[in-house]
């Protein structure tokens, strides 16, 4: 019974510790933080920058604003909710990004001041009353075509888009990313490449990228700015990886292996000693039984 009680107490302590983060997350925002104003007016370009930052740094806990896919258990709120938007001014959010609290790390050193403001513009863009100035970013559906230059291990991506008359033209100045498909995600190769005036972004595939048993790599190419250019992903199997040699470590005779992989010296020492000793024991027993006949 006492054991059960102890377990109960332990569960309680454990749950308390889990939820104490939400308790910790009591924000203590100084009054003057509210008045802190951005140095520039929000534009669509700045909001877009903020969105990219948000995706890679905030979304894992806070989810997509307004969609409620935040992790509430650790105290992360949905920043797109009306509650949050009404109770937090831009300055207050800026303070929170700077300081961090409880489960939230401080981003003071991680982002520049401009970046922080871009982030806040993006968060604030979910408030209906928030005014964004400047030109709206236009969608410009684009497409990618890949070609390989075997000799120099280079992949060329041709980015094209359509002009007003529907004619296909080269897309200049678009950021293109190259990935290699991996078990749990896509691994970026090299830097982001911006297409030139012919719409070409090319990259040299480094050596020593492990491929499958034939050395095949699964290459994926896409635009970085999927909002503008669309989510076109082009994939291609390239043979420039190193060949994977499948070595089964359990085939070796090891001390840690299974019985079938017992090191031979262990096997022979064991069998030799055991059989030797038991033969002598057998001889003695045999002689005892023979005692009668002596």
């Amino acid at each position: 019974m006492t054991y059960l009680n102890k377990i109960k107490i332990f569960i309680f302590v454990f749950m308390f510790m889990l939820f104490s983060f939400s308790i910790n997350a009591q924000w203590n925002i100084p009054a003057d933080a509210k008045n802190k104003k951005p140095p520039v007016d929000p534009t669509h370009t700045l909001v877009k920058t903020g969105k990219d930052l948000y995706k890679s740094n905030c979304a894992s806990c806070h989810g997509t604003p307004g969609e409620g896919n935040n992790i509430a258990a650790i105290g992360a709120t949905d920043l797109g909710s009306g509650d949050y938007q009404h109770s937090h001014s831009s300055g207050q959010t800026f303070f929170q990004v700077e300081q961090g609290n409880g489960g939230m790390p401080s981003f003071r050193d991680k982002f520049s001041s401009d970046e922080k403001w871009c982030l806040i513009f993006y968060i604030k863009s979910f408030d209906k009353d928030f005014k964004i100035t400047g030109e709206e970013l236009k969608e410009q559906k684009a497409d990618l075509r890949l070609s390989l230059i075997e000799k120099i291990r280079t992949v060329k991506a041709y980015a094209t888009t359509k002009d007003k008359s529907g004619k296909e033209i080269a897309l200049e100045g678009a950021d293109v990313q190259f990935f290699i498909k991996r078990m749990f995600g896509n691994m970026q190769i090299g830097e982001i490449v911006t297409t030139d005036n012919k719409g070409i972004a090319s990259i040299k595939i480094p050596e020593n990228i492990p491929g499958d048993e034939e050395g095949n790599l699964n290459l994926l190419v896409k635009f970085k700015d999927t909002d503008t250019y669309g989510k076109a992903i082009k994939s291609k199997t390239i043979k420039w990886g190193t060949k994977l040699e499948i070595v089964n470590i359990t085939d070796k005779r090891e001390m840690w292996g299974s019985l079938h992989r017992v090191p031979l010296w262990v096997l022979f020492s064991y069998l030799g000693m055991t059989i030797g000793v038991w033969l002598v024991i057998g001889y003695v027993v045999f002689q005892i039984i023979r005692l009668k006949k002596l």
Binding site: I180, R182, M183, F184, G185, N186, P210
Partner: peptide, 16 residues
């Protein structure tokens, strides 16, 4: 991740 692929993926950011 898989060391044979020389790639690891972050469980939170999904970056590889």
């Amino acid at each position: 991740g898989d060391a044979n692929e020389d790639a690891v993926t972050n469980g939170t950011t999904k970056e590889t």
